[in-house]
Amino acid sequence: MIVRIMGEGQVELADDHFTELNKLDDELLAEMESGDEAGFRRTLAALLDAVRRLGAPLPDDALEPSELILPAADATLAEVRDMLSDDGLIPG
């Protein structure tokens, strides 16, 4: 799956990494619902770090369609809330 982190670029992630990413996504959703700003910041950073660590970066000139778009590390709670679906940032 091709994942874009806004403002950074794209990475390709194998499907078997999504179990780990979905756990972080669930934590992020819970922190957003409770208004836990510090937890939100910490978990968003952990989620983006995991995507960077587990994914293979695509070249900057690659024009692949992104199947998943994640917010930038400095996104606000309100900005991320606008990006959410019923499943969180990561479907599944």
Rank of each mutant, 00 (worst) to 15 (best):
E8F: 04
E20F: 14
S34D: 13
L24M: 12
A45L: 14
R81N: 00
G7C: 00
A46P: 04
L44W: 14
L58G: 07
V51G: 10
E79S: 06
D49R: 12
T43S: 03
A14W: 07
A46L: 14
L44T: 12
P71H: 01
A75Q: 08
E12V: 08
E27L: 00
G39K: 09
L84K: 03
D74Y: 03
V11R: 00
T43Y: 02
Q10D: 07
L29M: 14
S34E: 14
L28S: 11
D16E: 14
M6G: 09
L54P: 11
D15R: 15
A62M: 07
T43C: 02
A62V: 12
P65W: 03
A72I: 10
D87Q: 06
G92Y: 12
E79N: 00
A56F: 10
E67Q: 00
V51H: 01
F18K: 07
A73Y: 06
E27K: 07
G92M: 06
L54Y: 09
V80I: 08
L77M: 09
F40V: 03
L89W: 04
D86M: 10
A38G: 11
V3R: 05
G35H: 02
L21Q: 01
D25N: 15
L24Y: 11
F40W: 07
V11Q: 01
S66L: 01
N22L: 00
M1N: 07
T76M: 12
L24I: 11
S85C: 08
T19D: 01
R52S: 03
G9K: 05
D49V: 13
E67A: 10
G7I: 04
M1H: 01
L24A: 14
D49Y: 12
G9C: 02
L77Q: 09
T76D: 12
L47N: 14
R42E: 07
L47R: 01
P57G: 13
L47D: 05
D74R: 15
L48K: 02
D26C: 09
L89H: 03
L13W: 05
D36H: 10
E31D: 04
L28T: 11
K23P: 04
A78F: 05
E79Q: 13
D82S: 10
D74L: 02
P59A: 07
I2Y: 06
R42K: 12
L89C: 05
A78N: 05
I90D: 03
E31S: 11
G9R: 03
L84A: 10
L29A: 09
M1R: 01
A30Q: 06
E8K: 09
R53T: 15
V80E: 09
E27I: 07
E20T: 15
R52E: 13
L21W: 05
L89T: 01
F18D: 01
T43K: 03
G55V: 02
E27D: 15
L84N: 08
R81C: 11
P65Q: 00
A45Y: 10
R52M: 06
L63H: 15
E33D: 09
D25T: 05
L58V: 00
A45K: 15
S34A: 14
D49S: 15
G7P: 00
D16G: 10
G39E: 02
V80T: 07
E64L: 15
L13K: 00
S34Q: 11
A50I: 08
